[in-house]
């Protein structure tokens, strides 16, 4: 009983909050173009589901392309960095620079340089999503117990064998937990880039719909787009978490906590 209550608690709490919200909106009589109630928001979605879902698909296309690129790039750079101290010294500071630079500040530049709208959005999202998967993988590659590294040395294993049979498998849980964080960030990066690009007028993603609705004071539609965005974020986060758990369970491992 208690367990079940705990499981349904988030949903119940959400429903309660929505009901209170709807009630408050009705009782106070706030106009719908300032604070719409949940029912108005659902209505806004139902009045143009195709447009909003297409926009969502466009944003997700950027997000997943960026996530795959960030994962590939992060993995490759982490491996390069673990292979040589020189590469480590050369790469690490720049990765941090990339990490601390606000994407909003460089997005306009990227959009001008890259030109192609889709590619420039992807580049922005990659910049935002790159660091967690990169840093986590680097930590994982370095997490090998010294005794195991000694064992490989004892049996004359070269760098390649040590990488493929020891360091990469050891880094897998770290990579996966980095990927989960990067997934959420890729979405954030995509949306931020769309906002910047949106004012340039060539974007088709959800952020653009939000901007557009804002100009027209369609606040309910803004909310509908927002709900789709956070829903997508939640699904990405949970989905990547489950994917990671499944992969690790098949290998008889457990996830790294808080890496």
């Amino acid at each position: 009983m208690n367990e079940r209550l705990l499981r349904f608690a988030p949903g119940l709490f959400g429903l309660l909050a929505l009901a209170l919200w709807e009630a408050a909106v009705r009782l106070t009589g706030v106009p719908v173009y300032i604070v719409p109630g949940p029912i108005a928001i659902v209505g806004a979605f139902l009045s143009d589901p195709v447009g909003l879902l297409m926009a969502l698909a466009s944003t997700l296309a950027v997000t997943f392309t960026a996530l795959i690129a960030a994962a590939t790039l992060g993995l490759a750079m982490a491996v390069a960095m673990s292979a040589s101290r020189l590469a480590h010294a050369a790469i690490m500071p720049w990765a941090v620079v990339l990490q601390v630079t606000p994407i909003v500040a460089i997005a306009p530049l990227i959009i001008i340089w890259v030109g192609d709208p889709f590619a420039s959005l992807v580049v922005c999202a990659v910049i935002v999503a790159f660091f967690p998967v990169f840093a986590n993988t680097a930590t994982g590659l370095a997490s090998v117990p010294p005794e195991l590294a000694d064992l490989f040395r004892l049996y004359g294993a070269g760098r390649w064998r040590t990488l493929t049979l020891l360091r990469l498998p050891a880094a897998l849980p770290y990579f996966l937990s980095g990927l989960r964080i990067s997934g959420g960030l890729a979405l954030v990066g995509a949306v931020v880039a769309e906002f910047v690009a949106g004012s340039g007028g060539f974007a088709s993603g959800l952020a653009y719909r939000i901007l557009e609705s804002g100009y027209r004071l369609q606040v309910a539609r803004m909310f509908a787009a927002l709900v789709l965005l956070s829903g997508a974020g939640i699904v990405i986060n949970i989905g990547l978490g489950k994917l990671g758990d499944a992969i690790l369970r098949r290998r008889g491992l457990s996830a790294v906590a808080g890496a």
Binding site: E147, L148, D150, L151, L172, R251
Partner: peptide
């Protein structure tokens, strides 16, 4: 040469 460490140091996967 065979080497056995204090911990079993197996590959957990």
């Amino acid at each position: 040469i065979g080497y056995v460490f204090q911990d079993a140091t197996l590959l957990p996967w």
